[in-house]
Design a protein around this nucleic acid. Structure first.
Length: 688
DNA sequence: CTTAGGG
DNA sequence: CCCTAAG
């Protein structure tokens, strides 16, 4: 059992931080380019990552808030939940909604799917004020004592309503770990984060296993996508619209499912598993990121290695380390402007955007409907294609959801929040940057014949397109040969038949608040993971454990038919992944006169060749000013001082300061010249 | 990582 | 501000 953790994210105008700067080495390799600009992750991506897998539903929220509507809505949700959790492996449910404004509600849950409704699951959440996201992880495939409980819960409470848990957990204590602008609830007791001051709020979460697994077929006929059918769109799914009170409350049940931190510390609940899974990383590094691709790792972008660089600090002399840390920290604290990510939902007109399920709409006048689809992602509405016009064969589809690769992340408990942020960001960046491919699913089956026409394939406006879906898959071409599917049976056996990246946040020591990963992993898999993690992430996992629960696989397949390892080989891996970029240009922050003065003063004292010292001396707490920035500023100051006042721009710098700049510059230039002269002298002397 | 410089 | 070469 991997996860009994309940996580909560409270998003409130979440601003997506930019990808971390590329490391120097990365940049040197030319793997880091500005072209990445504009490909920022959105909060939702972050969530996806954190959750390991998730499903995001977006619903247009009508203004209506009447009770009966809510009831209906709830029914829909319940249905959705039921479907979503059909598979035991699904362990997370994330929900979010855009408060107040009745335009967007987002529900996120497991399955590595992101359902998009309306158009913006891919839209930056940043733009959505008052957005709250709630994520709850539930138990997964238990094999210990809790399993029985879980099953009991799952079966007995299979009809558990989505709001039930919310109400159950309500009032529970919770601790949050700041995570970006969102908070990660470390405590397991509550699934819902309530923000009273907000007009809306995250309303509820669901726990895995609450649904019976008896009929997997149902998924095919009734994909998750359908959950939020039209009717649901009429009523806000989240926020205060749904009275929590109306849901049964059963704290006990919640407890059963959700693991408590205390339990973890004692380690009695899942002694073996947990320990293996979260045992402290030997010495690999402060941060390790593992990405597992179905049966193997997806090689993490080179820069991820940088994360381990910090380890070397330990070997450094204290002073030196301090210095490095200082800068590292500084960099990590850089603030980047947000840019809407254009990854899937809005870009790549040539490819259908990834998504699970889509909506076919008759469109007699339009062609290239795929483009439209990407722009207006919305829920598939079964049987809504009523207005088809006979003469036009074009199909218009709206991709409502998308499968998000999973990631595996491991990070020491002692890590800073900042490093956590960076880690996640790096992982996401690596994934997104490694190239994704779109897979097409029909009736739950992968459509591999790229050359077939839509009609031949059965994707036509005349057919029921309920089961049409898209998914994102790692691009094989981006993976190291050794990591290609098929090479290692190991992961093929795991619960993740699809080339999804498994992402987990792990805390080596089980004493902390959050020890559990965020995604559900079957026990066997967990063990393997544990071993795996021990090794360097470049090494291939050893196929030691073959006792995987195949039944799990099948379930997973049913639930997530989109991802099929084999499919990877089918699709040509040609396109050079347009790496979505990782770092973004920092926002421009003009120096204030005060800063200039401080700079001038420091330079007067230290000279022009010791920018690090200048930084430490005068800008030690200005995390956004790097020594390079200071150096550059000095450069511009000198230039400014030399040009006529009329040519100067921006906030005028007092002439007095400029004079000092010139003076200092002249002085230190002279000193520098002298130094060089001395060196030359010495050199010549030696030669002579 | 820091510096120094070009862009 | 970014990017790189160089130390």
């Amino acid at each position: 059992m991997v996860l009994q953790k309940r996580l909560d994210y409270g998003f409130n105008g979440y601003q997506v931080p930019p990808m971390p700067r590329a490391t120097r080495s990365a940049r040197r390799r030319g793997s880091f380019k500005k072209k990445h600009e504009g490909n920022q992750m959105c909060a939702f991506d972050l969530l996806a990552i954190v959750a390991g897998k998730l499903l995001l539903d977006k619903e247009s929220a009508p203004s209506s808030s009447d009770t009966s509507a809510d009831e209906d809505q709830r029914a829909v949700i319940n249905s959705a939940v039921k479907n979503e959790w059909q598979d035991e492996e699904k362990s997370l449910k994330v929900e979010a909604c855009n408060q107040g404004s009745a335009d967007k509600n987002i529900y996120v849950s497991d399955l590595s799917h992101v359902h998009q409704q309306g158009c913006s699951s891919k839209e930056s959440l940043v733009t959505q004020n008052d957005l709250n996201l709630g994520l709850a992880s539930a138990l997964t495939k238990p094999d210990c004592a809790e399993r029985s409980n879980a099953e009991k819960f799952g079966n007995g409470q299979s009809k558990c309503e989505i709001g039930t848990l919310a109400s159950k957990v309500e009032g529970g204590s919770s601790e949050y770990i700041e995570f970006g602008d969102c908070k990660l609830e470390a405590e397991t007791k509550r699934a819902v984060k309530d923000e009273p001051h907000k007009s809306g709020m995250v309303q509820s979460s669901t726990v895995a296993n609450i649904c019976n697994l008896e009929d997997p077929v149902v998924l095919d006929a009734k994909p998750p996508a359908l959950v939020g059918s039209d009717s649901s769109a009429k009523v806000p799914l989240c926020g205060n619209h749904i009275p929590n009170s109306s849901y049964p409350t059963n704290q006990d049940d919640v407890n059963v499912v959700i693991r408590d931190d205390d339990e973890n510390s004692s380690g009695c609940t899942h002694p073996i598993t947990t320990k293996k899974f979260f045992r402290p990383a030997p010495r690999i590094g402060d941060r390790r990121i593992r990405k597992i691709l179905a049966s193997k790792y997806w090689k993490v972008a080179p820069r991820l290695k940088d994360a381990t660089v910090s380890n070397s600090d330990r070997d450094l002399k204290p002073v030196f380390r301090k210095r490095q840390n200082c800068y590292r920290h500084q960099r990590s604290e850089r603030i980047y402007p947000f840019k809407k990510r254009k990854h899937f939902a809005y870009s790549s007109p040539s490819n259908s955007d990834g998504g699970m399920g889509c909506e076919f709409v008759s469109d007699s006048s339009q062609k290239g409907s795929n483009e439209d689809a990407s722009v207006s992602c919305s829920r598939m509405r079964g049987g809504q294609h009523t207005s088809f016009l006979p003469r036009d064969s074009h199909v218009k589809l709206r991709i409502k959801s998308i499968s998000v690769p999973e990631l595996l992340i491991e990070i020491p408990e002692s890590s800073t929040v900042g490093s956590l942020k960076r880690t996640v960001m790096e992982a996401v960046t690596a994934i997104l940057g490694s190239g994704l491919r779109v897979g097409v699913l029909l009736q739950g089956k992968k459509v591999r014949e790229d050359n077939k026409t839509l009609q031949q394939t059965g994707i036509s406006r005349n057919n029921k397109l309920d089961a049409l879906g898209f998914c994102l898959e790692p691009n094989p071409s981006q993976m190291p040969p050794s990591l290609c599917p098929g090479d290692s049976p190991f992961f093929l056996q795991c619960d993740t038949p699809q080339p999804i990246l498994r992402f987990e946040i792990k805390y080596p020591h089980t004493t902390g608040v959050v020890h559990q990963g965020i995604c559900a992993v079957p026990e066997p898999h967990v063990n393997n993971l544990g071993n795996y993690i021990e090794s360097d992430h470049d090494s291939a996992p050893s196929p030691t454990d073959t006792s995987m629960d195949k039944s799990t696989n099948s379930k997973a397949l049913v639930a997530v038919p989109a991802m099929n390892v084999e499919a990877l080989a089918v699709i040509p891996a040609h396109r050079k992944s347009k790496r979505s970029d990782m770092a973004q240009r920092r926002i421009r922050r003009p120096f204030s006169v005060t800063e200039v003065e401080a700079l001038v003063q420091a330079v007067e004292k230290l000279g022009t060749g010791r920018w690090r010292d200048v930084k430490l001396r005068a800008f030690d707490n200005a995390k956004h000013r790097t020594y390079v920035d200071l150096k550059d500023k000095w450069k511009t100051l000198v230039h400014t001082a030399r040009i006529s006042p009329q040519q100067r721009r921006g906030e005028p710098v007092p002439q007095e300061l400029l004079d000092r700049v010139l003076a200092a510059h002249a002085y230190w230039s002279q000193q520098q010249a002298k130094q060089q002269f001395k060196h030359q002298q010495a050199g010549t002397c030696l030669l002579i």
